[in-house]
């Protein structure tokens, strides 16, 4: 009888693996593991008027120029990008209270100027090194002040540190000497 047969029948699960494999391979192929990370930057608002002339003490300004052949000129002297971060840190914190470096971390200003022919990779590397300098200074300050790493501080403690060493990176209009590729 039909009823008896139904009791005996079992669904063959042998092909389940094949089906799962098929789906697996489909997802493997379409997958792009999201790498949505990047250097966060806040641009200054646009204004049609030329920016007001500010009288800045030159000792507080750290000017970084990047030319069309990706070379650095920092405060009038060529520099290797590998030493940029350490030099920036020294400039901001000025541990020896030198005359030609920032009076106070709160007054230090970093100024970047690039050329239209500068490679984007180099530009971002420079920006990254400058940001790294600030991050390291914040981390050191957090250890000294609160005895804790920066990411374990609460909001008020964090802002206390970032207010003492504010990140000020100003970008000038790029020059137009180099060739755009």
């Amino acid at each position: 009888m039909a009823k008896k047969n139904r009791m005996v029948n079992e669904i063959n699960a042998g092909s389940m693996a094949d089906i799962a494999f098929l789906l697996l391979i489909f997802f493997l192929v379409t997958t792009t593991i999201a790498e949505d990370k990047g250097v966060l930057v806040k641009l200054p608002p646009w204004s049609d008027e030329p920016p007001p002339e500010m009288k800045l003490n030159t000792r507080n300004v750290y000017s970084v120029l990047v030319n069309a052949s990706n070379q650095l000129l920092v405060r009038g002297e060529p520099m290797d990008i590998k030493t940029l971060k350490d030099n920036t840190k020294i400039f901001i914190s000025n541990p020896q209270k030198l005359e030609n470096m920032s009076e106070d971390p709160a007054k230090a200003i970093i100024s970047i100027k690039n050329d239209r022919g500068t490679q984007y990779g180099t530009y971002l590397e420079v920006y990254n090194e400058l940001k790294a300098a600030y991050n390291e200074l914040w981390e050191e300050a957090a250890m000294v002040k609160f005895g804790k790493p920066l990411d374990e501080l609460n909001k008020t403690q964090r802002s206390e540190i970032t207010d003492a060493i504010p990140l000020v990176i100003s970008e000038a209009e790029p020059t137009k000497f180099g060739e755009e590729k």
């Binding site: 790498e35 949505d36 990370k37 990047g38 250097v39 966060l40 930057v41 806040k42 641009l43 200054p44 608002p45 646009w46 069309a68 690039n114 050329d115 239209r116 022919g117 500068t118 490679q119 984007y120 990779g121 530009y123 971002l124 920006y127 990254n128 790029p174 180099g178 755009e180 590729k181």
Partner: peptide, 28 residues
Amino acid sequence: SEVTMGIVGDVKTSLRKAGQLKINYSAK
């Protein structure tokens, strides 16, 4: 990373004019 800054600068200016100031330079 091979692109030169000219075109990137144009985009930045355009973003600033449009009031979109929060940007993120995607990187590895």
